[in-house]
Design a binder for these strands. Structure first.
Length: 503
RNA sequence: GGCUCCGUAGCCAAGUGGCUAAGGCAGCGGAUUGCAAAUCCGCCAUGCGUGGGUUCAACUCCCACCGGAGCCUCCA
């Protein structure tokens, strides 16, 4: 099966073949751990996860690495080269507030002024969220989830190489800068030219900050700053690394290669972050390419509006799952479904309506799964993905630049008529779910997580009793009560059962 | 100002230079049910932002316009 993926580098869909046959080396820009991850973050992370799972289902051995940015970068790092406020200090302040308001447990971070503790706290929060949502790489911490603070010497080594190769210089302010003019193809990824970058930006470049640099687009590799909250010794003075260098360093180290197959991230990272990564990496290795494919997920909108930290209209994963955002607790499988079900290169609009739609799909899929599993005694038939008509159509759709809509159309059709043989159908479900990751996280805990299960069970018994006595108004009243409690109620010849709604 | 992208039924959302424009949700009709829910069957865009153009043929290509979004600035 030919896999075709859109490559930001060339602006077109291209045939994908890994550099080494059978093995894919893939790097995804991960979170900066100074706050809880929000649904927009996870749209991008789960896009990478879907891609990874699809490649695995295609028979490839995928090395998927996602970094944790735990260096205390500055809030204005990218444009102004290290002005603004330290992100870890911002986090510390917020943590203290959150502790007071009870949003964060009192004992969670003993000392909010210790940036390592803060980063560690939010990193584990991220990994927890990730595991709940079926983000496979989150279960591969630490070997596939490197932390920037653990690669400082390697970053310094790369900076020294860049200086030696004349790609970097120490500015008059003592800061080590990458010289974009030393790298003629700077701008290729984002469609920029050096001239446009110099002239453009609508006069938004801060003049004061530019005098020490050779070109306005030159970016920081190392900033000496003895007052910085997280700092390390270096040949250029005690300070901290630039924002971009960690990804160049860690991707090559952890993936054990200097040419990656795929590099993913959110669309906002195309410029400057990924542009800078390419320049640094190729500058240091001398290679033409840093990553062969660059893939970017478009932003998630919330009820039609862009979410941003500035606007404050963003929801963390925790807000959604706990029901704080929508008023109803949301099962992680539902949130996963909602975040993966639309094409990664289109804006996805996160809405409560979408969430209930997704809940429907998850319910149908898991109920079918439970039925099939019971019917075949939990022993699936082995399915040849390339051969079985359902999985073949599903994989074929995804092979076309991850056409998830078409793939889901296959899934919906199959749910309605899964075939005669439950063992085969269960095999199909497991094969599909290797990519979807829904059954995997919803199969067993839909009931277990219900704290009011006892009340629901007794109300169900009361309904059955009333129905037997043909007291239908009493039965209806009990049913209404269950619905108000957030249950879906069903009566059949086997009696009445109630399930907590998934969203 | 520069650079991208999008506009398909009430909503979400695929798709193709030419058979009857996927799928989901909602809605409607039916089976089922005490009534529901769930399930199953059936129906649901003569049209794909607007106006031109290319073509035997366009929703699909080109141009213009209108509307929307993103990046260039913390951000996935």
């Amino acid at each position: 099966m030919e896999i075709r993926l859109y490559n930001t580098l060339t602006n077109q869909v291209e045939r994908f073949e890994p550099l080494t046959a059978g093995r894919v080396k893939m790097y995804s820009c991960g979170p900066t751990v100074y706050d809880f991850a929000h649904v927009g973050n996870f749209r991008s992370f789960l896009f990478a996860d879907l891609l990874r799972r699809f490649l695995e289902a295609s028979g490839l051995d995928v090395w998927h690495v996602m970094n944790i940015t735990d260096v205390g970068h500055m809030t204005d790092d990218a444009v102004a080269d290290g002005t603004g406020e330290d992100k870890m200090q911002v986090a510390a302040r917020r943590l203290k507030e959150d502790k007071k308001s009870g949003k964060v447990d009192e004992g969670a971070v003993a000392n909010p002024d210790d940036p390592y503790e803060v980063a560690n706290y939010f990193m584990h929060a991220f990994l927890d969220d990730g595991r709940k949502l079926g983000l496979k790489v989150a279960s591969e911490y630490p070997h596939r989830v490197p932390k920037a603070t653990q690669f400082i010497p390697e970053m310094q080594q790369m900076i020294a190489t860049l200086i030696a190769r004349k790609h970097a210089y120490v500015g008059s302010d003592g800061v080590v800068y990458f010289s974009v003019e030393s790298f003629p193809s700077y701008g290729q990824l984002s469609g920029n030219t050096l001239e446009a970058l110099r002239v453009g930006a609508g006069g938004r470049i801060d003049i004061d900050n530019q005098s020490c640099k050779r070109h306005p687009a030159d970016f920081m590799l190392w900033k000496p700053d003895p007052k910085h909250i997280m700092k390390w010794d270096s040949p250029w003075g005690a300070g901290y690394p630039g924002w971009h260098i960690e990804c160049s360093t860690m991707s090559m180290r952890v993936l054990e290669t200097d040419v990656l197959d795929i590099h993913t991230g959110g669309e906002d990272l195309i410029f400057p972050h990924h542009e800078c990564e390419i320049a640094q990496s190729c500058g240091a290795t001398g290679n033409e390419l840093f990553s062969r494919f660059w893939m970017h997920a478009r932003f998630l909108l919330v009820e039609g509006e862009k979410m941003s930290k500035r606007k404050g209209n963003f929801f963390t994963v925790r807000d959604i799952l706990s029901g704080k955002a929508t008023g109803t607790p949301v099962h992680p499988a539902v949130l996963r479904m909602e975040l993966i079900k639309s094409h990664y290169r289109a804006h996805s609009n996160f809405t409560t309506k979408g969430l209930t739609d997704s809940a429907n799909t998850v319910r149908r899929l898991t109920e079918l799964g439970q039925r099939l599993r019971d019917a075949c005694g939990g022993v699936p038939k082995k399915i040849d993905r390339a051969d079985h008509p359902v999985t073949k159509a599903f994989m074929g759709a995804l092979a076309n630049d991850l056409n998830v809509s078409e793939a889901m159309a296959v899934v919906h059709a199959w749910i309605s008529s899964p075939g005669e043989d439950p063992a085969e159908a269960y095999g199909v479900l497991l094969a599909l779910d290797q990519v979807l990751g829904i059954w995997e996280i919803a199969a067993n805990d839909c009931q277990a997580r219900d704290p009011e299960g006892d009340i629901a069970a007794s109300l169900c018994a009361m309904i059955d009793e009333a129905r037997r006595a043909r007291d239908f108004s009493a039965a209806d009243a009990h049913r209404q009560r269950l619905i108000q409690l957030g249950y879906e109620v069903r009566s059949s010849s086997d009696g009445t059962s109630a399930k907590k709604k998934l969203a």
